[in-house]
Write a protein that binds this DNA or RNA. Structure first.
Length: 833
RNA sequence: GCGAGGAUGGCGGAAUUGGCAGACGCGCUGGACUUAGGCUCCAGUGGGCAACUGUGGGGGUUCGAGUCCCCCUCCUCGCACCA
């Protein structure tokens, strides 16, 4: 038994301890080495590691170990995204203090991660709930306040009643809270905002820089989220009044077709316009009604389009004709100017509205191929065409007209070219306890006073009477709330809201470069040496939220002079989900596989190997217990080879040169060895296709099982043993990023004194890898009819003769006419008849 | 509706540049070892008795298509009144 089983528990514990004692993965800046910053998304300490984490971190670990062996100075850190709601929910449900719950989880999960044998520099570990981390989150807040990138305003916010807090737009998914799946309602609150919109253009533009290293779909999602649109703002005077209403449109070419105007019910002029008209009451009722509507229903496109007449008219500034002003629920106050001109002939939403309320439809653009009928049309014509009923612009192409009419508006000073973004400023206030306190003081005389830098961090009190209910306990904790105004010295109140946790994850990768730095948030030397992250690995679920915020922070930190990069993550790998029985592994579905139990049963090496072998990283991974068995079996096969021939091979010195007239069998072993190095190296570094890399290693093992195992005669054949040792040693080296413990143990067993990670990644010799004989396919009319073995250096002419001379082929050809002969060197000969 | 990705044996997946479809693993079948089972080792394994046929379906380009082009079906993901 002992011989067949490598006793994973023993050797894994042994090597993990040695790696830790020798601080093998500890790194520092070294200007003489090429740096490589490899990062996986840090986990939320929810309690236990799940398979998604295992997959994420194993993928990263292969890359880290591979780069280490290639001689890079590799930064590979780990930490904890430790603030957030689940800690409070656990507190409420189980009466455990969020801090205790969080730190217990961190300690357990760190222990779990260490059992996987991951190559982290644990000395750089950070936890975002630690005051030495969040003090700098507060520092950034104050700096951004100085830079006028932070502001406070009353705003309608997404409110989750279950979580008792505000959600950013990005955290509302289909009208439901991203965390608890409960409906989100609207509430008006005083909120702190970060001005991410100030960077909208740069965030959009720099997507181009990421096109090489990021998945296209992530960039598309980001671009859509930023939602740039180019158009014009146009002033419409209100009839019988001095008031002017400004609208935003992307289609100035349709201005002559505007037959009515729509205002958002929240528009400041909405109720004012209706005042004194016959429609005042119905308008008021309508505004009231819409305010109670769910935001999701209103913005989903599925809700009913409703409206009400204000009783007033605006003057179309180009036609000088009066058009009725209506209010409608589908116009949003937050976008553009909160008012639109309606061109029913050329906008489907407007057409639906016009037909419903019997408002006029006026065609101003005809397609080139036919004419529209405004009386009967049910589909708005939104595409390109030529202008009609547009006085001086008639006949113009609509694309051209956009430019011309915009110029005309600017000339007449009734409008201007305008760019709008869908992206809104980032509301960061959360009415929760377990988060970074917002470092602000409210004073009756001085109003809003930022906490002075020297008073940071504003410590989140831990020794607090936690009431275990939804309301933030800070609100009932006078020792925290009551303070002195730093400006006038009078009693004042602290802000009791905390920051959105996405703040923590927006700069943690910067802090890893200098985790214990005291003089400021970042040590410029370290940050500028390591940043940007060369490879970032994580789940696709963060495609918008986290990645956009992190990009935003990077640009802000650059503008503070703390960083020299524009983008934080050069390359991004979004790994697929772990699936079992056709569904994502989830507690609620009862299909979770516990990594701990698997490690207990098979060892970390097997678990690592399986999650890397079962599918390429970007695809979903279908869990298979039998697949795990297969990987375990493979490692045992490696171990058995080592048990049987390790001592023999250990004694062999492979420094000696192979003579040029090496026997065929030896050349074949060496060829396979070097082909495998080539395949594994390229699969890891060019494609991250670890599944095919592993299968190549399996092939080499299979080859060694089949070759003539050293008999008595073989034992004296030095060259043969050298080739075998070269092959086996190569297997161990190539396997080491995937299954590092068994590799390390065998490596030591082969007589090596230093860790395998210190050994350079093997190089392949293209000449040795080159096939001597290749099989060439002979086709007749594209169908394979025969195969011949030829020298890989065969001349085309000779190949042709061999193909035509092949007996089986001769039979097919007989005396028929050959119309064409296609020869693909080293691949095939196709005879066309 | 718009955008992106996908569909290959019984299963997970290979095929990187238009050139032998199915690497590797699982499963299955047979053999060896064994009192027996398991483990292990070896061999076989897309379908079809065969000619042949086969990468979701239909068409096309090409000497040659899983791969390129057109049309269609289904699946997954993202966005979805942003004027």
């Amino acid at each position: 038994m002992a011989n067949n089983d490598h006793n994973s528990k023993r050797i894994e514990a042994k090597w993990q301890q040695i790696w830790e004692e020798q601080k093998l993965f500890k790194v520092s800046e070294d200007p003489n080495k090429k740096k490589y910053y490899l990062l996986e998304m840090f986990p939320y300490p929810s309690g236990r590691i799940h398979m998604g984490h295992v997959r994420n971190y194993c993928i990263g670990d292969v890359v880290a170990r591979f780069k280490l062996m290639q001689g890079y100075n590799v930064l590979h850190p780990m930490g904890w995204d430790a603030f957030g709601m689940p800690a409070e929910n656990a507190a409420i449900e189980r009466h455990i203090h969020p801090a205790k719950w969080t730190w217990d989880n961190i300690n357990f999960m760190r222990y779990q991660l260490k059992k996987l044998g991951l190559s982290y520099d644990w000395d750089r570990e950070i936890a975002s709930c630690h005051p030495e981390y969040y003090r700098w989150s507060q520092w950034f807040f104050l700096k951004m306040y100085e830079m006028r990138l932070v502001y406070r305003r009353k705003a309608w916010v997404n409110w989750c009643q279950t979580c008792q807090t505000v959600l950013a737009n990005e955290q509302v998914e289909g009208g439901l809270c991203w965390r608890c799946d409960q409906p989100v309602i609207q509430k008006e609150l005083e909120q702190w905002f970060l001005k991410i919109t100030a960077y909208a253009e740069e965030l959009l533009r720099d997507c181009e820089k990421l096109a090489q290293g990021w998945p296209e779909r992530v960039l598309i999602m980001q671009k859509n989220w930023i939602g740039k649109s180019i158009g014009a703002e146009v002033d419409f005077p209100v009839k019988d009044s001095t008031t002017v209403i400004r609208i935003y449109t992307t289609r100035p070419d349709t201005l002559y077709g505007a037959t009515f105007m729509l205002l958002a019910p929240e528009h400041p002029l909405a109720i004012e316009l209706a005042r004194g008209t016959d429609y005042e009451r119905s308008a008021g009722q309508f505004i009231d009604e819409v305010s109670r509507e769910e935001r999701f229903a209103r913005t989903s496109g599925l809700g009913e389009k409703k409206g009400v007449f204000t009783g007033r008219y605006a003057i179309n500034p180009l036609t000088n004709q009066p058009i009725p002003i209506w209010l409608s629920n589908f116009v949003l106050m937050e976008y553009g100017t909160g008012a639109i001109m309606s061109v029913p002939a050329h906008d489907q939403r407007d057409l639906d509205f016009a037909r419903k309320y019997h408002l006029p439809v006026k065609v101003v653009i005809h397609p080139y191929e036919n004419r529209l009928d405004e009386e009967t049309m049910v589909e708005a014509y939104e595409a390109e065409g030529y202008l009609v009923s547009s006085a001086p612009f008639d006949g113009l192409n609509s694309q051209v007209a956009i430019e011309r009419i915009t110029e005309y508006l600017e000339e007449k000073k009734i409008g201007q070219r305008t760019i709008n973004y869908r992206l809104r400023d980032w509301g960061i206030s959360r009415q929760r306890y377990w988060g970074t306190p917002i470092p602000v003081i409210y004073c009756q005389t001085c109003d809003i006073v930022p906490v002075p830098y020297q008073d940071l961090p504003v410590i989140l009190p831990i020794d607090i009477d936690f009431k275990f209910e939804g309301r933030s306990p800070l609100l009932d904790y006078p020792e925290f709330l009551n303070t002195i105004c730093p400006r006038c010295g009078n009693p004042a109140k602290r802000e009791s809201d905390t920051m959105d946790t996405f703040i923590c994850s927006s700069w943690y990768f910067d802090r890893y470069t200098c985790p214990r730095y005291q003089e400021g948030p970042l040590d410029p030397k370290a940050a500028n040496y390591w940043m940007p992250v060369d490879q970032y690995i994580g789940g696709i679920e963060h495609a918008i939220l986290h990645l956009l915020y992190a990009r935003f922070y990077t640009k802000v930190l650059r503008d503070m002079g703390l960083l020299q990069v524009d983008e934080p993550f050069l390359n991004l790998l979004t790994q697929g989900m772990v699936i079992k029985d056709g569904a994502k592994m989830a507690k609620s579905k009862g299909n979770v596989v516990d990594p701990d139990k698997l490690i207990e049963k098979y060892g970390a090496d097997t678990v690592r190997l399986f999650v890397l072998f079962a599918a390429p990283p970007e695809k979903d991974l279908e869990w298979s217990d039998q697949g795990v068995e297969g990987c375990s079996r493979f490692l045992k096969r490696v171990w058995r080879l080592y048990q049987n021939y390790g001592p023999l091979l250990k004694a062999i010195n492979i420094e000696q040169k192979y003579p040029s007239d090496c026997p065929t069998e030896i050349r074949a072993i060496r060829r396979k060895t070097h082909q495998t190095i080539k395949k594994v190296t390229e699969d890891i570094q060019d494609r991250f296709h670890f599944n095919t890399a592993i299968s190549a290693i399996m092939e080499l093992i299979n080859t060694l099982y089949l070759v003539n195992i050293p008999s008595q005669e073989g034992r004296t054949n030095k060259l043969y043993l050298m080739a075998l040792k070269e092959a086996f040693q190569t297997i161990i080296l190539l396997l080491s990023p995937f299954a590092p413990h068994i590799a390390e143990d065998i490596w030591a067993g082969l007589g090596n004194q230093t860790s395998i990670i210190k050994h350079p990644w093997p190089d392949f010799d293209p000449e040795i890898a080159q096939e001597e004989e290749i099989e060439v396919v002979i086709q007749i009319n594209g169908k394979v009819r025969s195969r011949i073995l030829v020298s890989s250096e065969i001349a085309e002419e000779e190949l042709k003769l061999k193909a035509l001379g092949n007996p089986r082929i001769k039979e097919f050809i007989q005396d028929k006419q050959i119309r064409r002969l296609v020869i693909v060197p080293r691949k095939l000969v196709n005879i066309v008849m």
